[in-house]
Each structure stands twice: as structure tokens, then as C-alpha cells.
Design a binder for these strands. Structure first.
Lengths: 143, 143
DNA sequence: TTTAAATAGGATAGTAAGTATCATTTATAA
DNA sequence: TTATAAATGATACTTACTATCCTATTTAAA
């Protein structure tokens, strides 16, 4: 068993990436994070962002949210919790709802799969999009 | 209010696509469906598959599963139900678990989003991958 | 029943998110 | 100090999916 001379270095890029991700609770996409980090490290490459996010996911520092939507999103909170996704703008937020452990057991009884866990995502309309929608409706009424 | 001269035709391609999708319960990807349909319609284009799947989703005939994983999957059963995804091979199956309506209400109390519904996906290892894993472990032991 | 309009199909080009490659730089260890 | 490993940034590539375009088919009108 030869341990390879491998160790995850806390480079400036990784540190700033993690700082920026921890700063927000909207679970940004890789591209959004790239833009955020670019303000502090203008020469950073998009590849570095993707690479380091993946490394941090693998080492359990952050979570990758792979549910609905086109793009993957990232989350600095690693404790299991649920999310809402806005069906209009795609934004994601946390839902501070007790994680349902028992549902995993129930599912395990119903299938021949070896169940590991579950992902729960709520869908809805975010406050901003609700407002925008209301404004639009009002506009149509007066027209 | 001018209704456009639009109506969804039940073409051969659409019919066969729907038949093939209804035949299986593994929720195939567009690409998998393409291969399935190709056996009966060798000249069909991949674009036609994507286009018609989208049309059928829009008209509510089938469901698009946009949860975890790289690709979207399709489901001929439109009643709300849950799924398991194999974390090894990506295969998806149904979980015949009672849909938790009350969880949506609970979530609505915890967020400023206007909650519409929820998506629940279990993760685990499918029987085939469990077997393959077991065989691999055994091989390593004897080596 | 021919003709016109709408719709659909197949081929192909284009997008966009994400991944792989590679030369260069930076950090660590001998 | 030097050798080795690892990380970076630039760029090329892959893949799932979408848009475009021209042809074919279906439907409706004359």
C-alpha cells in the first residue's frame, strides 16, 4: 500500500473560491462563481474554477447539487438539507426543513436497489419572480 | 384571440416513440430512445427524437425527468411518483412509494417561494451493479 | 382533385456546460 | 539548491441538446 505523494494544497484560488461560495446562500453555478472570483483574481481561468470545485466536492468540503436544471450548482453547507428551485429564473435557496430519514427506509422496502440516500428539491416561484409576474399582470390589465 | 392553425399530429415517428417509451420502465434518455426507435425506423433523425419528446412533454403525454445526472430521461407515466437512480450506472427505476403531499405544505411554511411541488429522487446501487461489485470484491480476495 | 398552407421530418450546423491536455509556474521535499 | 510534485491558465475537445434549412407529407381550401 504505497500512499501517493498527494495532498490537497490550499492555494489562493481555492481559498478565494471557498470564501466566495461561503459568502452567498444562493448556490451559484460554476460560471457564476467564476465571475465572482474574477473580481478578486482577474487572471483566473474557468478551468481552474471547475477543477477546484470538483476537488473540493471530492474531499467533502462542499456539495455539488445535481438536481433539476441545466447547470450544476455548488453549496458550502455539507450537512444534508433541502432546496427550492425557482422554475422561472432557476435560482436556488435552502429550505430549513427537517431531513426525512425515515423516507429512505420506506423506499428501501419498495425496491431491489441498495438505497444510500435521497435528494429532495422543491419547485416554485421565488419572491423576485412573483413580483415581476404581478407587475406584468397589472400592466396587461391596464393596457 | 386568434387560435393558430396548430394541432399535434400523431405521426408514425411519434407513435413509435411513445410505444417504445411505454414498453420500458427504466426511463430512457433521448439517445437510448433513439437507438430503440431506430430498430423500427432506421432513417429517423436524432433531432426528430428530441423534438417529439419535447412536444409530448409540452402536451402532457409524457414526463421529462430533470433530476440528477448528466442527461434528461423520459417517462411515459405522468402521475406523480418517485425514482431511484443507480449511482454507479445511472439507471433509473420507479419507487412505488406514496407521494408525500404534506411535505409541500411544510416547505411552503419555511420559505418565501410560492411552492408548486417537489421532486424526490433516491440514490443507491441497482441489483446489477451490486452483483458486479460483489464479483469484483471476490476476485480481489482470491488474487 | 388539384392546389396552397401548415406541419413534420431528416440532415447538418451551432451552443453551452463541462472535461482533458499541455506548457508554465509555484510549492514542497530531498 | 535542486528535483519532484502539484496547480494554474490557456486552449482544444466532448457531449447533450437546440436551431436552421430544405424537403416531404399531411390537411384544408378552392
Amino acid at each position: 500500500m504505497n500512499t501517493p505523494p498527494s495532498m490537497v494544497r490550499l492555494t489562493t484560488q481555492r481559498q478565494i473560491l471557498l470564501e466566495e461560495l461561503s459568502k452567498v446562500n444562493t448556490h451559484p453555478t460554476a460560471c457564476e462563481l467564476y465571475k465572482m472570483v474574477q473580481k478578486r483574481l482577474p487572471r483566473i481561468g474557468l478551468g481552474t474554477v471547475y477543477r477546484n470545485l470538483e476537488i473540493m466536492v471530492d474531499s467533502g468540503i462542499i456539495l455539488k447539487l445535481e438536481l433539476g436544471g441545466e447547470q450544476k450548482r455548488f453549496d458550502a453547507t455539507t450537512e444534508p438539507h433541502y432546496h427550492v428551485r425557482c422554475t422561472v429564473c432557476g435560482k436556488m435557496d435552502d429550505v430549513t426543513l427537517q431531513v426525512q430519514e425515515e423516507i429512505t427506509k420506506k423506499a428501501a422496502e419498495k425496491t431491489s436497489y441498495k438505497i444510500i440516500g435521497h435528494l429532495l428539491e422543491f419547485t416554485g416561484e421565488c419572491p423576485d419572480c412573483q413580483k415581476a409576474q404581478a407587475a406584468k399582470t397589472k400592466e396587461a390589465d391596464t393596457a
